[in-house]
């Protein structure tokens, strides 16, 4: 179990990571989500032992201070794989096995390549692989010696969108099958949801919220976190009260985060307004509607509704796509 208490890192006196505390139980996958510059990569590098840090970091109670990277047993996988270009796929994957003189390394390499779906790629050189294949090889290489902890630094960001989705699903399956404890850094919330079961959100060098992925998702700690998690808007004050009442929820807070699909054009509903813009996407029409008492909000309509700017529409509210934001933020 990885445990961090008040870990901080600074570059030339400028803090990049401030008082990070977290626990990661064996077998769990934690996604660290944050915009670029939020300190999430610094956190990962500090755990890998690549940045000098203050505070206490331990594994199963053993202090990690002074343990160099190569003795931590934490494998690190980079955004662009960082395969060794002069070694074949098999030798890349078997690198750590050879370091430890593991017997029967060839069989283990075959097994790993099968796990990541690259059977028969043993003798290829990294330069002949596609981006997705390279990331799979990098993953196999990291998993080869069953690391205590796998650190993934934006493992899918270098890939194009379609591939990213497929590989995220694969990554989740592979991590579960291997039973790996992993910490993944990403700026893409969908990637985080596809792969992780716990989530830590970072901003300005601090962990602002952490917990089970569903908990964080349903109860973002503040407006900025909500927006980063993919909520379309945060309404506050009277608008928030109006929306909560319309959704049939208790009016307990002054701010509410709204997903785009929380409001949908319906035949009957508690809200009404005028469409101010409409954009057709493959699955639905995305609207911006000026609702009485709420102001401008996002909404969706089915493709066959033909909502157009200037139309009067009635909106239904899906309470499960709203998140009340606790007071004090």
């Amino acid at each position: 179990m990885l445990s961090l208490r008040d870990v901080s890192v600074s570059y030339d006196g400028a803090p990049a990571l401030l008082d990070a505390s977290l626990d990661l139980a064996d077998g769990q996958v934690l996604a660290v989500l944050g915009p670029s510059g939020s300190g999430k990569s610094t956190l990962l590098r500090a755990i890998a032992g690549l940045e000098p840090s203050s505070g206490r970091m331990s594994w199963d109670g053993d202090d990690l201070a002074g343990v160099p990277t190569h003795k931590r047993g934490f494998a690190l996988m980079f955004q662009d794989g960082q395969l060794f270009g002069h070694l074949t796929v098999a030798r890349n994957v078997g690198y750590a096995l050879r370091l430890r003189r593991t017997p029967d390394a060839a069989a283990r390499v075959r097994e790993l390549l099968a796990l990541v779906g690259l059977e028969g790629y043993e003798d290829r050189l990294p330069a002949t692989l596609s981006g997705g294949e390279r990331q799979r090889v990098a993953l196999a290489r990291s998993l080869a010696v069953r690391p205590r902890l796998l650190l993934l630094d934006e493992p899918l960001s270098a890939l194009d969108a379609g591939l990213r989705g497929r590989l995220a699903t694969d990554l989740a399956r592979i991590l579960r099958e291997a039973g790996t404890t992993a910490l993944m850094v990403t700026h893409d919330h969908e990637e985080a949801f596809a792969v992780a079961d716990r989530l830590a959100v970072m901003r300005d060098g601090r962990i602002v919220q952490q917990g089970g992925i569903g908990e964080v998702w349903q109860a973002p700690a503040d407006a900025a976190t909500a927006l980063f998690l993919g909520y379309a808007r945060v309404l506050d004050g009277e608008a928030a009260h109006t929306l909560l009442r319309a959704a049939g929820l208790p009016v307990g807070t002054d701010a509410v985060a709204v997903r785009r699909s929380a409001l949908a054009v319906a035949d009957a509903g508690p809200l009404a307004g005028t469409v101010s813009s409409a954009r057709v996407t493959p699955g639905q029409i995305r609207l911006v509607v000026d609702v009485d008492g709420l102001g401008e909000v996002d909404a969706v309509a089915r493709l066959d509704t033909h909502a157009a700017p200037g139309d009067e529409v009635v909106l239904g509210v899906d309470a499960s796509r709203l998140a009340a934001i606790p007071a004090g933020h």
Binding site: T69, H70, Q82, F84, S142, V145
Partner: peptide
């Protein structure tokens, strides 16, 4: 990061030099 990747796989400084 090539060196860091090697180190995270368990290679010591000399081994990192030889690999990367």
């Amino acid at each position: 990061r090539q060196r860091q990747a090697a180190a995270s796989l368990g290679a010591g400084p000399l081994r990192v030099f030889a690999t990367v």
